[in-house]
């Protein structure tokens, strides 16, 4: 026995290939979640009482329960209501909704950092509502929440590993399959961990750079 480094190296190509699936899914989810989070934020700002009440319950549900359970619900429960998405789409839907909620909550916090006077100034210039969002509010908002948003991307990348439990063949599931035939689970799992380091470290590094830069700009 002992840790077989050679074996670990030998399986890296197949793990790397599977990791591309995680990368692809994470990219799709990130785009959906940022779009979804932004739209939901704009909707919430309109203060439609009934809508915001529903949103409040959804936020509480998403923030109060495990992502794993949300993935199970998308995969096992939605088909009962006639919505059979298949494992990959169900997983993408679950993680996207989860991130959408965390992003809109980030935005709620970020909005409080914007000077209200700017809105009044923009309105007095007769800018239409959607233009105020696009030209005044959103650019500043994204700058404010950027560090948190980058962190959320790492959460999304990590979340894709959970899709293995609903049979999506990504890195973790691939490594389990490999380990099932080679009986070397430890090396294989370390390989899977390395894949996530490679995926997430650049994101974390980018986040640190951004944080330093915004901190510098505020000084």
């Amino acid at each position: 026995m002992g840790f077989q480094f050679g074996y670990l190296v030998s399986i890296l190509p197949s793990l790397g290939e599977a990791a591309l699936i995680n990368a692809r899914l994470a990219a799709i989810i990130a785009v959906l979640a940022i779009l979804g989070g932004t739209l939901l934020t704009i909707l919430r700002a309109m203060k439609i009482a009934a809508l915001n009440a529903v949103v409040a319950v959804v936020i509480s549900f998403i923030r109060g329960t495990p992502l794993l359970i949300q993935i199970f619900i998308a995969f096992y429960v939605l088909p009962i209501f006639g919505l059979d998405l298949g494992p990959e789409s169900a997983g993408v839907a679950a993680i996207s909704l989860n991130s959408t909620i965390f992003i809109t909550e980030m935005m709620r916090g970020g909005l409080t950092g914007i000077d209200p006077g700017q809105i009044e100034a923009a309105t007095s210039l007769a800018l239409p509502r959607w233009l105020i969002w696009r030209k005044v509010v959103l650019p500043q908002l994204f700058r404010i929440i950027l560090p948190m948003l980058v962190n959320e991307v790492t959460v999304i990348v990590k979340g894709t590993a959970l899709l293995s439990v609903i049979t999506v063949v990504e890195v973790l599931r691939t490594s389990q399959q490999i380990a099932g035939s080679s009986f070397r689970p430890f090396e294989t799992l370390v390989g899977a961990a390395l894949c996530f380091l490679v995926l997430n470290l650049p994101v974390i590094a980018a986040g640190k750079v951004i944080e330093r830069r915004t901190a510098g700009a505020r000084r």
């Binding site: 430890f186 799992l189 996530f196 380091l197």
Partner: peptide, 22 residues
Amino acid sequence: LLTLRAIPFIILLFVVYYGLPF
């Protein structure tokens, strides 16, 4: 710190799960 932040908890769990008996 970086490693633990970059790796999904489920992977860390499996690494520990298979690594300890190892």
